[in-house]
């Protein structure tokens, strides 16, 4: 479901991508695949002993869900030039999550996005920016 970038305008939201909820099995799979076996993501008792209400998802798992959404929006033509987020709030397994993005700027073949995870309560626990190279885009100075 890649985006037709030729018709995308500043201010527009991209089609939302279902990104959650994250299960405990997915936490374990991500821990193995990433090498981040920090027990605060896997072991309730360790998470509680270290000041949390229970296990939380890896920040990088949440960012990875947004990264996967970037890949869907881009399609085969483009690539990610930059991608940065702030982990503003913790995310627990089981929370619903939708990956969302809004176009904030366009410059030639580059599209800048505001990106965030939406747990359905209006908060943006993981949020940031991405710059995409959209090779199929042709600059059209007449319409910007």
């Amino acid at each position: 479901m890649s985006v037709d970038w030729a018709g995308v305008e500043v201010g527009q939201e991209l089609p939302p991508v279902e990104a959650g909820p994250v299960s405990r099995e997915q936490l374990a799979a991500y821990a193995e695949a990433s090498g981040d076996r920090n027990p605060i993501h896997l072991d309730e008792s360790v998470a509680r002993a270290f000041g949390l209400d229970g296990v939380i998802i890896h920040g990088m798992l949440g960012m990875g869900l947004l990264g996967a959404a970037l890949g869907r929006w881009l399609g085969p033509a483009g690539w990610v030039r930059s991608f940065e987020v702030r982990f503003a709030r913790m995310i627990r397994p089981g929370q619903p999550l939708t990956a969302r993005a809004r176009v904030t700027a366009r410059r030639g073949s580059q599209v800048e996005l505001e990106v965030w995870l939406d747990p359905g309560d209006g908060s943006r626990p993981t949020r940031g920016r991405a710059t995409l190279e959209v090779e199929a885009v042709e600059a059209d100075p007449g319409t910007s």
């Binding site: 920040g59 990088m60 030039r81 930059s82 991608f83 940065e84 982990f87």
Partner: peptide
Amino acid sequence: LRRVLHGEQAFAYAR
């Protein structure tokens, strides 16, 4: 790592 939370993360690519 049990005391570590992740605050921010950024990636930049030349290609």
